[in-house]
Amino acid sequence: MVRLLLKYFLLLCILIVVGSVIGPTGFNVDLDLLTTIRLPRVTTALFAGAATAAAGTLSQSLFRNSLATPSIIGTEAGASFSLALATMLAAQYGIGLEVGNPIFYTSIGAALATMLSLGIMRFRPEGLGSSSGDSMARLLLGGFALNAMFAAGSAFCLSILMENGAGMSLYHWLMGSFSARTWDHALGITGAYFVCVALAFRLAPTLDALSLGDEASRSIGIDVARIRWQVLLITSILIGSSLSCGGALPFVGLIAPHFARLLSKPHVKILLPLASIIGAILAVSADLVARTLRAPIDMDVGLLTTLIGAPYFIWLLISNNGWAGGKSRD
């Protein structure tokens, strides 16, 4: 396990170096450029990817479902919508705060969306008896509806802003981009990541035991409701902070934890660092491609991860690894 982690960590280190020295005009090692533009950008991408992947790992455990990642269950879309709404209200009507610290809005949006999703998945008309069975369909259909709803809401806010010619920055933000990141962004997301993951580490054994299901984990002595709130809070801050500094990274939250689960034991204390490293690799390399492929134009990194991620997601569905979390994976 340690060797596996080291292997991927080494890959990440190489990527960081490569990402730092390659610019729009090819190789370019200018110390000033490096410290003021590239390093903050690479650091932001790295920890945004890691945070999204960690959040994905946590929400998989929270929902007891390997498909229940922030982009599927609507957490990211909710966070995006929340910021779009706040931006629109501030620009149009002067209501609320200026978007000085978007993490506040994105975290609240992420938390509300996750709660909605949990509510939809767990709601049972009779209130008694056991769930399962159709919970998968509920999760995906509920997530689909929430994603569509929040996307429509974001598009609505965006269209209002566009009419006044003020929507471009929000548009790029919604698509996900690490361009023009400063050390403020980089340090903010780094701090949020380490605090959240440290908290999540303390919950790791409990998250493992939650896989037993609500009733069984309650009957071995776990306060399921309390743990659920704590994990929800941590996940929302992770998603909120990664979105607020880099925009949406859909599919990083899905692929990285999935990949980690394919590679290692299912224990959260191993998955968290492994998925984080894989998420960071994905985000840093997607960002590298985004700013070099059509240089000097910056592509939106979220678009790139979706272009890679969506086919992978379809492959997961077809190969039956996603459904019920892979019955015989060892």
Binding site: S61, R64, N65, S66, S130, S132, D208, S211, L212, G213, E215, A216, S219, I220, G221, R261, K265, P266, H267, A324, G325, G326, R329, D330
Partner: peptide, 17 residues
């Protein structure tokens, strides 16, 4: 849990523990 132990009828586990 320190007084009673319960085993229900359903034991599905989504992950490979």
């Amino acid at each position: 849990a320190s007084h009673m132990s319960y085993v229900g009828s359903e034991h599905s586990n989504p992950f490979s523990y």
